[in-house]
Write a protein that binds this DNA or RNA. Structure first.
Lengths: 350, 350
DNA sequence: ATGAAAGCGCTAACAT
DNA sequence: ATGTTAGCGCTTTCAT
């Protein structure tokens, strides 16, 4: 990289450096970067050469100050839940970063006090550090949505506004009911007729949604759900306990679970009883976590299309930050089912 | 939040707004924020009240432009390795974000073409979007370190400069050899004498380091390692294959693995042969992934102290960005062993 | 098609 | 202890 004498050896070149080198004004360089159409072809070429030679790239801070935009998207991350199989954030974050890059944005991570869902948002907003937020933890009944809305802070939610269908912020979500219906139908197709559900407590909107997919699939085949459902906390121990009770009292031949964590609990029960998943009892989880992928004999699981979610989220962000802002309707994506050994003898061997 | 008439209703208050309200100059407000010691107590109080009332927070872009610092740390993230148990990034990223916050920094995520380890760094550097980088994927023989060094880009590595012990950049790493020695000693203490190693190919520095811990522990008790080691790719299938061969040819009663992924491969082999982990054969993995935590009967695993790593990384960053920069020696942290059912009948029941 | 002037909000350097 | 001046690097507006 060529250096201008008299400058700090590490200071990157500025617009003025390029202008001098190309023999034009600073403004023309700016136009070459942002509105190339305005330049005559030969001028443009000369400026571009100078840019190339100097390795010029616009200074972010200066541009941000001038345009009042940071091209940064804030994403709050919570601590990893140890002892669970929860694994979607990892994949989602990567997809979001990747997609954001294509849209000329970067992702700014910030931490949040798990007890205060609002912590961190305010400072970033008031210091104009980010242009918008991506809000992911809507499962709590997200006060963020209302709060951010009240502050006129642009944001896109990954997750439906369950508690307020009239909310007018953009959102993207995955159809959990469809996923569980898919899972249940898969077991029905394998010949199972007594299929149990292990899900979350009734106050979880997501949990009730997923459960409805199980109900729907059984009803569609004229099968009863009575005595086959259990609602517990999202822990391996709860899954194990619930499956033990269900096996004793309802004798199901298959389990559909609201999470991979609960499904792993079922695998624990089976291991204790000398039963083999996929041969003796079928098990399906939700999220297609790494756990599902590597546990013997492989856990069949509902997979959220997180790459698509990221694409839709970024699309919504771009609309939101456009002039004038454009807010489309919520987007509901359909998950797929990844079949492994836990639900089909064929799948044995990973 | 009070609003100044004549301004956009959404534009945050500026230094000038606060100055006017407090009846002082803009500089005094700036000092109140950055050098409160310079103000007389009563002036400081008045300014602070004005700041409070207006909800003022300094504009990031303006401050960044003026101070030539973004208080942003760049972290490149790679795609999640599907089908493996690899899980440390998640935990590390969260710890890093948390610790950075305490140091007044935020973490900027960017994506990288997995094939080009340098992609993404250059642009952020030249556009002065970040103050420094945290480099994590040093296992490849990291060209980033040399490259960033040549550009005088401040960075801290999570991972030793294996290929260049003379490198003078700050780094933090976890002692893999000590971890595997811990794991092997644990099995020795349980009475095992034939303990096999399943690790990575010889060109992996990290793999050889971890393996040396296994060797050291066996040698210390006068036991031979001959015929007990295998070097394969980091996949579940490889771990399964290697453990099958080792069981047939060397009859080990315990396995120490370079990763949880390989350890899961061992569990596959055991499941196929009707053997029970922890009762018939002991297995230890590395990384204490979620997989290790939830798989029945629980996988004993070496746990990296990622929270400490993050603390040391941020410490090193602060030194690096201080005036003048201060670069301390590399920091090597010691992992712990999390014992679960796969290596002790006691651990049965999670 | 190109250039000149102004200013985004802040802080470093110097006055007072 | 506080105020004044200048300028960080860029883009918007307006003139040429």
């Amino acid at each position: 990289m060529a250096r201008i004498p008299g400058r700090q050896p590490t200071a990157p070149p500025t617009l003025a450096d390029v202008a001098e080198r190309a023999g034009v004004s600073r403004q023309t360089v700016s136009n070459a970067v942002n509105n190339p159409d305005l330049l005559r072809a030969d001028t443009l070429l000369r400026v571009q050469e100078a840019i190339e030679e100097l390795g010029y790239l616009p200074n972010r801070a200066a541009r941000n100050l001038r345009t009042r935009a940071s091209h940064l998207v804030g994403l709050r991350i919570n601590p990893v839940q140890e002892g669970t199989a929860s694994a979607i954030m990892d994949r989602f974050v990567h997809s979001l970063v990747e997609t954001s890059r294509e849209a000329g944005k970067h992702v700014l991570l910030f931490a949040g006090d798990p007890l205060d869902p609002l912590a961190g948002y305010d400072d970033l907003l008031r210091s104009t550090a980010v242009d918008a937020f991506v809000v992911t933890d809507t499962y709590l009944g997200n006060p963020q949505a209302a709060w951010l809305g009240a502050r006129r802070a642009p944001f896109v939610a990954f997750g439906r506004p369950w508690d307020n269908p009239a909310a007018n912020h953009p959102w993207v979500d995955v159809d959990g009911a469809a996923g569980c219906e898919l899972a249940t139908s898969h077991l029905l197709d394998q010949g199972h007729e007594r299929i149990a559900w292990i899900g979350w407590r009734k106050d979880s909107w997501i949990g009730e949604d997923r459960r409805s997919g199980w109900t729907r699939a059984l009803r569609a085949r004229g099968l009863s759900t009575t005595g086959l459902a259990s609602r517990v906390e999202d822990t391996v121990a709860s899954g194990r306990g619930a499956s033990a009770v269900l096996l004793d009292e309802a004798r199901p031949t298959g389990f559909v679970c609201a999470s991979d964590t609960l499904a792993m609990g079922v695998l624990h029960t089976l291991a204790e009883r000398g039963l083999v998943a996929g041969r003796d009892v079928a098990v399906v989880g939700f999220d297609d976590s790494q756990v599902a992928q590597v546990v013997p004999p492989g856990l069949t699981s509902v997979r959220q299309p997180l790459e698509e979610v990221a694409v839709e989220v970024v699309k919504a962000l771009e609309g939101l930050l456009a002039h004038p802002p454009a807010v489309g309707p919520g987007v509901l994506l359909t998950p797929t089912l990844t079949v492994r050994g836990s639900s089909s003898a064929v799948g044995f061997g990973t």
